[in-house]
Design a binder for these strands. Structure first.
Lengths: 344, 344
DNA sequence: GCAAAATATGTAAACGTTTACAATGCGAAT
DNA sequence: ATTCGCATTGTAAACGTTTACATATTTTGC
């Protein structure tokens, strides 16, 4: 076992070892169809193998070739919704021969910008981004540098030309969740959500209202509980919830907010589904560990990741390519957290 | 708002706009101390800003400079243990001006190898890797190409020179977990773990044995339940557990295995801590959502990520740098899952 | 046997940087 | 008026590729 921490072998060294020109080596190694003696071709391959030759992507990039580098920029690394998407993107890109840079903006536009600048400096071939809050400037930066971009999940006010969108159906999620509770007999249903500056997040509330409208209920404004997307925010929602005369609750986000709410309910000694029926939008890791298990609206993370990745690959090939916004449907996962309302 | 999807500005364009040479621009933009007229220096900066100039990292890499690209390769993307480490690595690298590529080997050495090859082609400055199972070859690949490497969490048989190690104290984790149960009065304690080919994982079992030895207990071999690190593996462990005469359980892994076991316990109608006291090694997202909450051994993910990142940065600066293996300590998090054993 | 066609291989420019080195201009000292 | 030293700026090579183009070699058709 020989370890050679020298500089990696270059195409030139391979050529010298074979006794041919670098052009020949390049043609062979890239599988371009150039007429060539069979034994030369094979000699190149063995020499490359012997030297442990690995092409230098930086040099290739310099020639204007594709870099084989894709970036995914998400706003919450710890949120398994985004993790699942990343896993799928990585899988698609791996098959396509690319490597994925994963960035975490932590919902901070300034941090997002600094990451984007570095990504651009790295000459990425393309970018999938779930924007941190509402900052069209950062997306414009990508557009200015001609980086093919797919926007994920969060729609931002500005119209960025030649930028595609892949998300899930927020309105449908709110609708589906609320309908399940209505079907169980509930009418006084609260909604807990994030006080987000991101426009399309609030479509979930519209879905909630629409479902209630189907049974001629106009929700009391106090039923819509909006707070930070944190454990603390969730606890506050839980506290405000105690004062409301509702029998069911739609929790709009499965992550920290949901944990805060459920924790606070436990502290208050309120049980689901006896005291409160619950449907969650999103699928937490712990869905069937809490008892009774929670009814959830599952978002198509895997498909979102795959579609976003495939779309991006298409855009990298054909930069002019623009696809219509893609809104993927959700699935209802039944659980023990729904029961008919108790008759008072 | 002008969108210019043209090719990004080069140093040459900046030079032309200012009416100077590319050398001058390079010196200014890199902050090298070269005697220069103040107004020229400023003219360069404004021109660069106006053109939205962003240096081309590929060209820089070609000159043998640092690339600003670091890779983290983990074997389980969905496991929040690794996610937390990645978050911290990313933060340190961001401050250092580098970008992080995150790869997922999915415990598959072949996949790990193909990712590594691509990373090497990308001319990464360094790599933090938690090896998939036991494949020294893959680490040798990195060594051969002179990529500074820090091995994370999993020790692999082979001695790779100039490779550093950052992990947590597996033996200590097993010891600490078991001692807590012993302190509560338990003597018949089972251990549930992963049938992993990775050597140092099994140190946890040694810690478990050592703790029992402190109170002169030699565990029945049947008490050590080893299975796949999956939901199914966990369920099987749960089933085997039903036949054992034990009052407590150390679960060696917090992820899928633990979920499988706890799910199966629920199915059997066994409650903790009444029927079985439990300590978990690792801190799942849902730790205080299950009731009663679980006692856990928290591993220092944040510090592991930070130390690994700092060590790698040092190695990138000074490739010869080698530090002694770093074993970070764990913390016990109390929870409601421990109670004295019932007197039969 | 010879030109032409077909096959096989080499040459060199370009990509965007960094940086050693050379070159310019200018005031001061001789 | 030279010459020197200093401050300032420019020139050009190199990094490892890809690929258009040129060249060399063989085969073919007559």
């Amino acid at each position: 076992m020989t370890l050679r921490p020298e500089r990696p072998a270059t195409i030139r060294q391979v050529a010298e070892r074979v006794g041919t020109s670098i052009a020949t080596v390049s043609y062979v190694l890239n599988g371009k169809d150039r007429a060539m003696r069979k034994e030369l071709r094979e000699a190149v391959w063995t020499a490359a193998r012997d030297l442990g030759y690995v092409g230098n992507a930086a040099a290739r990039a310099l020639k204007g070739m594709q870099r084989g580098l894709i970036a995914v920029l998400v706003p919450q690394f710890g949120n398994n919704f985004f993790t699942r998407i990343c896993v799928e993107v990585e899988a698609v890109m791996r098959d396509a021969g690319s490597v994925v840079i994963t960035g975490n903006s932590d919902e901070d536009p300034a941090q997002e910008r600094s990451i984007l600048e570095r990504l651009i400096a790295q000459q990425i071939d393309g970018c999938i981004i779930a924007p941190a809050l509402s900052r069209p400037e950062n997306l414009e930066l990508l557009a200015r540098h001609g980086v093919p971009t797919v926007i994920l999940e969060r729609s931002i006010g500005a119209d960025i030309p030649s930028t595609d969108f892949v998300g899930h159906d927020n309105f449908g999620a709110g609708l589906l969740a609320t309908r399940q509770l209505i079907a169980a007999g509930h009418r006084r249903i609260a909604y807990a959500g994030w006080n987000s500056p991101i426009a399309n997040i609030h479509d979930r509330i519209e879905g909630y209202r629409a479902a209630l409208a189907e049974v001629d209920v106009v929700p009391d404004p106090a039923w819509v509980l909006i707070d930070d997307l944190t454990l603390a925010g969730g606890r506050q929602v839980g506290e405000r919830l105690a004062g409301l005369d509702v029998t069911a609750l739609v929790i709009g986000h499965h992550h920290e907010l949901a944990k805060g709410i459920l924790g606070e309910l436990g502290r208050q000694g309120r049980r689901w589904p006896e005291d409160l029926s619950i449907v969650l939008i999103g699928t937490p890791e712990w869905r069937d560990l809490v008892r009774p298990s929670l009814a959830c609206i599952e978002r198509p993370e895997g498909e979102m990741g795959r579609r976003a990745a495939e779309l991006l690959l298409k855009k990298v090939e054909t930069p002019a390519h623009v696809a219509p916004a893609l809104l993927l449907a959700n699935t209802f996962l039944p659980g023990g957290s729904i029961a008919p309302p108790r008759v008072p």
